[in-house]
């Protein structure tokens, strides 16, 4: 028997009895950031492969959601800060060992690039759009010429954005549940899956929808593969990590994780998308909403369960 009593009362709110310093803001941002990363990644990828007309929604229309998602995500991030007026301190230094510093600087690149990309394609959505001022037209002309460079920057920075959302968690060895390098690829895959789901939803072109349904199926397969490996890694690791993963294997987060993330967020939409590819008529909104729901839940559950996991000493 082992009993731990904190005699003096470590009366720091949010730390005892269980750490809870990251609330809805961080997972919300991680979802929106991941979604933006997915949208921008596919836009850049298919533009660079010369398929901008074939996959018009993915390259030109859907990425317009990215700056909106990023802006909302940044608002959430800002709300999370406790010393808000000092937020600019993020940009007075570059700290290579800090994932959050990487994230701040990546956002500094991704956000303007996504805005420029959207501006370049605004006429696709509003054919009568007029830039009014000459300098704006010149600027658009300049970026139009440099579109390939822009696409490369977008491809790389969006991949960093997608991976970093997971690394933000995996870099903390104090929370054993987060401390696995699978988090980076898992969150990137989840962001890409959310991005491709949104493209399926917005697209009216059958070939494009089919392509992204295939892509999404493949990515869901990769996510399931990563999740299985995550569990294998944890169960073969030290006692603290075994205890941590038991939060999902019989512990308080079991039903949420398997029910919301794995079954409703991955397996059910994968089956529905598979059936659709086989020619069954399935309302496109159902798998799309499920994928997005799963993506949100993954972040919330990992964030909360991670804060419940700790070293015992």
């Amino acid at each position: 028997m082992r009993e731990e009593i904190i005699v003096s009362g470590r009366n720091n709110p949010l730390i005892d009895p269980q750490l809870h310093v990251w609330h809805w803001e961080i997972p919300t941002y991680l979802f929106l950031g991941g979604l933006a990363a997915g949208l921008l990644f596919f836009a850049a990828l298919y533009y660079l492969r010369g398929k901008e007309n074939e996959y018009r929604t993915a390259v030109k229309i859907a990425p317009m959601l990215a700056p909106i998602a990023l802006a909302l995500g940044l608002i959430a991030l800002f709300l999370d800060l406790h010393h808000k007026l000092y937020f600019w301190r993020l940009y007075t230094t570059i700290r290579l060992e800090s994932p959050m510093s990487w994230g701040a600087w990546t956002l500094m690149i991704v956000t303007p690039v996504s805005i420029i990309w959207s501006a370049l394609h605004i006429k696709e959505l509003f054919p009568n759009w007029d830039w009014k001022f000459d300098f704006a037209k010149e600027l658009i002309g300049f970026f139009q010429k440099k579109k390939k460079v822009l696409a490369w920057i977008m491809l790389i920075s969006s991949a960093i954005l997608g991976v970093y959302t997971g690394i933000l968690f995996s870099a903390f060895n104090a929370r054993p549940l987060w401390n696995t390098s699978i988090m980076g690829p898992l969150f990137l895959a989840s962001g890409l899956s959310a991005g491709s789901a949104v493209v399926i939803w917005m697209s009216k072109n059958h070939a494009e929808r089919k392509r992204f349904a295939q892509l999404d199926l493949m990515i869901i397969g990769i996510e399931l593969f990563l999740i299985i490996h995550m569990f294998m890694g944890f169960l073969a690791s030290t006692q603290v990590q075994i205890d941590a993963v038991n939060l999902f294997l019989g512990g308080p987060y079991t039903a949420q994780f398997w029910g919301f993330v794995v079954i409703l967020g991955m397996i059910v939409p994968a089956i529905l998308e598979g059936l659709e590819l086989k020619g069954y008529k399935i309302p496109v909104a159902i798998p799309v909403v499920l994928v997005l729901f799963g993506s949100v839940m993954l972040r919330f559950i990992i964030s909360n369960a991670g804060q419940a996991s700790r070293w015992l000493y």
Binding site: L14, L19, L81, R89, L90, A171, F172, R310
Partner: peptide
């Protein structure tokens, strides 16, 4: 103090839970 943005990353990173906002 005046460099801290209150992001709580250090609080989650501490295995001893020694920090607070």
């Amino acid at each position: 103090k005046n460099e801290c943005i209150g992001c709580s990353a250090c609080i989650t990173s501490c295995p001893y839970d020694a920090r607070f906002v």
